[in-house]
Design a protein around this nucleic acid. Sequence first.
DNA 1: TTTATTGT
Length: 320
Amino acid sequence: MRVKYFKSAVSKFILLSSIGSAGFYLGRKSVENRELKNIFCDEKINLKSKPGLPVFSTVSAAALIPRNEFSDKPTIVSQESRVSQIMRFGFPSLDNVRSFDDFILSYDKRTRTANWVFEHLTPDHVKHNDDVDRSKCDFKVDESIHPFFRAENSDYKKSGYDRGHLAAAGNHKRHQKHMEQTFYLSNMSPQVGKGFNRDSWNRLERYVRKLTKLYPNVYVCTGPLYLPRKEADGKLYVKYEVIGDKNVAVPTHFFKVVVGESADGKLVMESYVMPNQVISDDTPLDNFKVPPESIERAAGLLFFDKVNRKFLKAINGKNV
DNA sequence: TTTATTGT
């Protein structure tokens, strides 16, 4: 997704980096006005000239083989699979992609948490369902990942961090099995509990669910960020804690990129970055909006690459 | 309403 530069982007960057104790950088140049213009102002960017982009158009979601807990045999997926519905607008990357029944995940063996998760929400997915009970769900090891690289429950124990869902449990209320699959530790990242996971991040997740009241289809990509910050010597470093015997990485931030599709096919995009720290409950979610391109650069991902610009009407509330 | 941990 190539996006135009908006003047408000500068103030949003400043706002974002002012949240919390110290400034984090969504790209080294992003705080410099001149560089920002170079990055975002060129409306004539030739997509084909960008490395990596053409590769994605050749990848078919139908080739993926989803997990099936109840059989050793791989299931061949039809063209109209849930995977291709969820990934309709393209894969952010192709690294270690795993498909679950109602969400897709790319796993990072080095950090022992995901690179990204992708979900497709409809009013049906988020409405209350008496048959689905969150309290019956258990956090469980993802046995499909090599023991060297998978998080254990013991890694989180007494770490001070929550096992925070990336694909939120509340987004998968159609079947008990769907919700249970969100409890694999491959879908967890260490998150500050009170003040973040249980509060402002949860507020963002509920807001995304609420978007299904406005848009019959909502697509959302969520993941961790490890952003550089300036140290005392004036240089930028990426620094993050690791927890447990498996050294599970504690992300500095998390992102969400959301696309809502109206009944007439028109699309709006919103993208957020929140620091993994205590956030005051009265901080408006708008304060966390950042240009999607800045997340792409920081994360090494491309979001909604297959969206036809013709249908994209707004990014972060601004018409495009 | 939805997030969760710790201790019993």
